[in-house]
């Protein structure tokens, strides 16, 4: 397990838990990062407000890779602008592309996401596109230069779990890039299942932000993700189609 690394944009990570930083107090970020064991944290880019003197960057421990998202973008052009602004903020060239035109279900627009991925990958960004789990779109994202593909498990913020399980499995099986399950994961058991399926990492935000004890939930996710990864690497045992199979020897019974 020590040699089991997640590689994104040439950078090696031992943690496979990507932490969101939205919808909770800045003061909880340090404990969340620590208890999650997270090495990557997502951020958003918004219009600056001079009344807020505090910067989220002051709360993120050193050495954690920042993954700005392009939330708020409605098309590829806006996503590209937000990504460039994020890079200008001087915290690296990772970007999570997030393009949504639908305000009810907040579903990502795969076509615009492919366009933005192509432009930003050419500009040297490490592009992690958030997408609706569609095989053709995932192939196009890979061709466009994505460093990973981030399919949603369920509508963002819903905590509904692996609603798209079958389609995420297809991406894991067919796409030669890390598949990072993003959005909709509500419980550690669901994160564990995604990892057992062969996901490269799991991203969670709302599951933690809406939990009773955020750092404790961060720790629970960390353990679940590690357990799921170990299970995947070990190779899951087979499932019988029918009947049972004893775990005990079938000889030597106390019987005359």
């Amino acid at each position: 397990m020590d040699h089991d690394k997640l590689i994104l944009g040439g950078k090696e990570f031992t943690s496979r838990f990507i932490l969101g930083s939205g919808k909770y107090s800045l003061k909880l970020i340090e404990a969340a990062v620590r208890d999650a064991g997270a090495q990557i944290i997502t951020l958003a880019v918004r219009r600056a407000n001079t009344k807020e003197q505090e910067s989220i960057l002051d709360y993120i421990p050193k050495g954690v890779t920042l993954l700005p998202n392009t939330s708020g973008a409605r098309d590829a052009n806006e996503a590209v602008r937000i990504a460039r602004l994020a890079r200008e903020l001087g915290c690296g060239d990772f970007v999570k592309i997030e393009i949504m035109r639908d305000s009810k279900y907040l579903l990502p627009d795969n076509q615009e996401t492919i366009k933005a991925t192509e432009i930003l990958a050419k500009e040297g960004f490490v592009v992690l596109p958030y997408m609706y789990p569609d095989l053709y779109a995932a192939r196009a994202l890979a061709d466009a230069g994505a460093a990973a593909v981030m399919p949603l498990a369920a509508p963002i913020g819903s905590n509904k779990g692996l609603a798209a399980r079958e389609f995420i499995q297809i991406l894991i099986d067919e796409i030669d890039l890390p598949i990072i399950v993003d959005a909709g994961i509500g419980r550690p058991s669901q994160a564990c299942e995604a990892m057992e399926m062969g996901a490269a990492a799991v991203m969670a935000n709302t599951a933690l932000a809406t939990a009773g004890d955020l750092p404790l939930m961060a720790a629970a996710f960390r353990q679940a993700i590690e357990a799921g990864r170990a299970a995947y690497l070990s190779g899951l045992g087979r499932v019988l189609v029918r009947g049972g199979s004893a775990s005990d020897p079938l000889t030597g019974f106390l019987r005359s």
Partner: peptide, 27 residues
Amino acid sequence: IVPKSRYAQTVLADGDCIEIVNFVGGG
């Protein structure tokens, strides 16, 4: 993008559209 090194030389003009952004919490 206006690079930081050009803030002092950048003179705002009528019709300009300026966006000033920073990082906030997000998923």
